[in-house]
Design a binder for these strands. Sequence first.
DNA 1: TCACCGCTCTGAAAGGTTTCATGAGAGGTG
DNA 2: CACCTCTCATGAAACCTTTCAGAGCGGTGA
Lengths: 347, 347
Amino acid sequence: MSPPGIKDVAARAGVSVGTVSNVLNRPDHVGAATRARVEQAIAELGFIRNESARQLRAGRSRTIAYVLLDAGNPFFSDVAKGVEEAARAAGLALFLCNSDQDARREDDYLDLLLEQRVRGVLVTPVDPDGDRLAALPGRGVPVVLLDRAQHGGFEGCSVSVDDVEGGELAVAHLLELGHRRIAFVGGPMGIVQVRERLQGARAALAAAGLPADALTEIVTEGLTVGEGRSAGERITGMPAGRRPTAVFCANDLLALGLLQQLTQFGVAVPDDVAIVGYDDIEFAAAAAVPLTSVRQPRHQLGRTAAELLLEEDAAANGGPPHTHRQVQFSPDLVVRESTRTRRTRPT
Amino acid sequence: MSPPGIKDVAARAGVSVGTVSNVLNRPDHVGAATRARVEQAIAELGFIRNESARQLRAGRSRTIAYVLLDAGNPFFSDVAKGVEEAARAAGLALFLCNSDQDARREDDYLDLLLEQRVRGVLVTPVDPDGDRLAALPGRGVPVVLLDRAQHGGFEGCSVSVDDVEGGELAVAHLLELGHRRIAFVGGPMGIVQVRERLQGARAALAAAGLPADALTEIVTEGLTVGEGRSAGERITGMPAGRRPTAVFCANDLLALGLLQQLTQFGVAVPDDVAIVGYDDIEFAAAAAVPLTSVRQPRHQLGRTAAELLLEEDAAANGGPPHTHRQVQFSPDLVVRESTRTRRTRPT
DNA sequence: TCACCGCTCTGAAAGGTTTCATGAGAGGTG
DNA sequence: CACCTCTCATGAAACCTTTCAGAGCGGTGA
C-alpha cells in the first residue's frame, strides 16, 4: 500500500535495515554478495528514499533557495540558471521563489524556507535594508545577496555587477568615437542601478576632461520601451545644433524605444545619433539596428553566488573557514551597429 | 545550539508536546490561557516548525512541482506564475524545475521529486511519449500535462491551448481584411505547435472556399528573429505580382524578424504586407509597428493545471471523486497596427 | 593456543512532529 | 452526593532513515 521503505527492502533481502542504509550510503562497506542482494530487492520493490526522513535525521535539508524579483525577467532567469548549475554540481536541489517585487511575498517565502530547513538562501531582496534578511544568519541559515552589494545591517557575502563601471564603459566608448554631446536616458532615480550607471557616465566625462554639461540628462519614469519612445520625442524635438549625437540608455528597453522613435522621425542610427543600451537582452542583438549594449555576466553571477553559499555552508560543517566576501563583477561592452560609425564631430 | 523544537517550547510553557502541537494545528481545542502561554513561548524561543518532521509523519509533503522546458521563455514564466498563484492559494510550496529541453534533466528532476514525496507534478514534457511520466501515477503521484494534450501511454489530466484554432483565427482575420495571397512562415515541422498552427491556417482558407495554393508555406529552421529575417528575404525576393499581401508567422520572433527585414527593404507594414504573429510576447506590442498576434491564456493555463492537480490530490485523500480531464483553452487574437489597414485587394 | 585485527553485519537509538487513546478535573444533573 | 458529560491536557507510539557501538567470525602473528 504505502510506498516500500528501507525496512521492506531489508526484509526482502534478508538483512538488517542498517545494512540497506549502508548499501545506499556507503556501498564499499558492504560485502559484494549482500550488496547485490539488497540492490535487487530495491529494484524489485521500486524503493525510493524518503527525503523527509533523511532530512529529519540529518537535521538539515539538501536544498538551497533563490528568491528573485521577477521570474519573467531574462536577467534573473539567466542568473537562476547559473545558480542551478552550481546547485546541481553540489548535488543539491534548488527552490526557485518569485517575490514579484513584493516584500510580503518575500517574507512569506523566507518563512517557508526556514521551515524547510534550507541549507542557505540566495536572494535579490526587494528592500536590501530590511532587517528580515539580517536575521537569517543568526538562525544558522547563510544568506548571499545577489545583484545587490552588501548594505546596511546585513553581514554576509554579496555578488553584484559594477554599475558605475558599466556607465563609464558605455560613455567612454562614445567619447572614443568622437562624440561630444551625449545624453543619458534613464529613471526613475530611485533605482540604485540607474543612479550608478549615470554616475559612471559622469565619471567618464570627467575623466575625459569634459564639462559636466556635456551630458544631457533625460529622466524617465520607468525603464520601458514606451518611456524610450517618449525620450526619443524629446530628443527629436531639440534644435539640431543642440541635439546630442549619442545617447546612453540605462536599459535596453529604453534604447529600443528610442531607436524606434528616432528611426520613425528620420534620424539615422548610428549616423545621426549613436545609441548604447544596457543589459544586452536577447532583442538587443535582434533589433532593426543591432544595439551596442553593456553586458553583465549573469550566469557567472548566479554561479558564483551559489558557490559562496556552499562554501559558507561547508565551513559551518567543519570545512575550511569562510570569510564573507563582496564579489563585484565587471560588465562588458558589446559593440554592434548602433555605434558602429566613427566620425570626428565638432564640439 | 540546535534550533528549538516543539519539546523546548513545551518545557518553557510548562505543557506537554501534544498541547504545543495542538496550539499549532488545532488552536480551538486548547484553552485560551494555555494557548497564550504556548504562543508566548514560541515567540520567545523563535521556534520554527520543522517541515521534514511534519512530512515524515504525514507521509507526504506540502509541495507540488512544475517541470518546465525553459525558464527563460516568458511563455513558461507566465504559466509558472499561474501555477504559483494556485499553489499559494492552497497553502502549498512550489518546486520550479527547469529541464532545459533535456530529457535526462527532466528524469533527474522527477527522481528528485519522488524522493521529496511531492504531492503532484505539473510537467511540460520534453518527450510527451516517454513512459517515465506514465509511471508516476502508479506510484501515487498525480501528474498533469501542461501545454501538451494527452498523448500516447499517459493517462491523466492535461491542459493546453488549441493551436489549430489559433491558426484559424489568425488567417480568418487576414481573409476578412481582404487578403487573398497569404504566406505561412514557420518551422521546423517537427514541432507539434508549428504543424497545428499551419493546419489551422489551411482550415481557415478552406472554410473561405479558397484553393490550398493561396497559402505559400515558407518553412524555417527555427523560431528565431534571424529566421524571420531570412523569410523576409525570400518574400522580398518574390516578383511583386506573386508576393503575398499578408504573412502569418508561427511565432512572434519570426514576425519581428520579418518586420525588420521588410521595413529595411522598403516594404511597408501593414500597407504592402500585413503581419500576424503568435504568442503575443511583450515585444509584440512594443515593436516599431505593433504586432497583431495570437495570445494564449498563459496565466490561466498554469492556474487551471494546478487546480486539476489539487483536485486529483484531494480525491486521493478522501475528497470528492476526480475524473481525468483534457482541458483545452482557446487563444485570442490581439489586433494591432501590423494588420490595421483595411483594403480590398485583387485576387 | 591465544590475543588481536579487520571485515561484515546487526540492532537499537535518535531526530521532531502528529495523532490518538486515555486521564483528570470542572461543571451540571438528578 | 453520586454520576455523567464535556473540556483540556497528557504521554506514548509511529513515521523512515542514519549512525554507531558492538557482535560474530575467519585469519594472522607471536
